[in-house]
Design a protein around this nucleic acid. Structure first.
Lengths: 210, 210
DNA sequence: GGTAAAGTGGACCTGTGGTCAAGTTCGGTG
DNA sequence: CACCGAACTTGACCACAGGTCCACTTTACC
């Protein structure tokens, strides 16, 4: 078919520099006050380059997030239990939630930045660079998290609205107060409460009626 | 004591005009693309007036939200059960969640706008106009919702982390996918799943250990 | 009516995300 | 190695947002 043209060496170098710089700034400053210009400067490239590579603020954040979440995705698909396959859904769900809390905890800034970026999708429709911007408007990482969560819920409780319950469970991680908690390092506390929530849900009586 | 100076008639008129205009725009356009200038124009006042009255974008949104949520606050504090006092916490919680879903459902736009505004609190610390911007950074409406929810949880399950569970429960309402659901009018669906979540939680086994 | 405080408007400032045309570098090829 | 087109880079530039400022008007009270 079409011959995939390899990415040029300098381009690759720059991409990594930009990602690194973003990571760095994210660790040091509040995400909403990091401008693309700052990122460019910190990476030692022109602003134009940043946009050329990532399309938009959102694109940058999504790319970074994807990188961060990759390991988890692997572990779930083909790693050892309880994250990977081989144990009952309930157990996997708990492990998965713990893992997500962990990832989120180590990337609070990014999460917030993503949320912020979601807001800022002005005019153009982004035809090229179209890796993100799918039917749902969510980034692939969230897509995967939600898909897995809702599948696990459905496996144990097909009578519940797994789709939505998964959104509720995951959505809570994006809320300001919860992020603040993570910032204070209370990861365990969050994980514990999420478990309560999830296990309670799996054991809940069937909904009142259809 | 100090004589409270009454608000001038023209000022009151303008304030209402601004609130109305905002409501209006919010109903017609996506919240993130409503500018303060538009609001001012739609209200038939100058941009300066809007800022004079509400201090910032955030201030405007908070004020609107407060107006919208007032009825619920009343009903909870002194209305008839199950919202008001007089029935077991479990029942009140369910009723309260239903009510919140309802309010949120009828104000999705506002909610999103609030979230967006939270992000945009740039330089100044806002000494005057200090009605919002409290220790927690949350607006009074959320304050109340969270306080009530967590109190009800604690009443029934003092062994759980009511504070946090309340944040989780409420936080889920702010997530993009959930908002989208509301936009599609599936209010009932959300309410049902929230109930499952909450009742499951109240019936959950005691957390693994301290 | 007079007057001081409250309120008003809109030009203006700062800083953002995003665009673009002109120039530069890479990497494969004869 | 010299060459050439595609990929890449760049920073000035644009549109437009939130927020500030202050000269001017309106109000409420005496």
């Amino acid at each position: 078919m079409i011959e995939e043209r390899r990415e040029r060496a300098d381009a690759a170098r720059n991409r990594r520099a930009i990602l690194r710089a973003t990571e760095d700034l994210l660790a040091r400053h509040r995400p909403e006050q990091i401008s693309m210009e700052q990122v460019a400067a910190a990476a030692g490239v022109g602003k134009g380059t940043v946009f050329h590579r990532f399309g938009s603020r959102m694109g940058l954040m999504v790319a970074l997030m994807q990188e961060r979440a990759y390991a988890l995705e692997e572990a779930v698909a083909s790693g050892p239990p309880p994250l990977g396959p081989g144990v009952p859904p309930e157990e996997r769900l708990m492990a998965f939630l713990d893992a997500i809390v962990d990832v989120v905890g180590r990337n609070k800034g990014l999460l917030a930045a993503l949320g912020h970026a979601a807001t800022a999708a002005p005019r153009p429709e982004w035809k090229e660079h179209g890796e993100h911007r799918d039917e749902d408007g969510d980034h692939p990482v969230y897509r995967f998290w939600h898909g897995h969560t809702s599948a696990l819920i459905a496996a144990r409780r097909p009578d519940l609205d797994g789709e939505l319950l998964a959104h509720i469970l995951l959505g809570s991680l994006q809320s300001e107060p919860v992020l603040r908690l993570l910032e204070r390092g209370e990861t365990m506390r969050l994980a514990a409460s999420l478990r309560v929530m999830a296990s309670g849900m799996l054991a809940a009586p069937a909904p009142a009626l259809a």
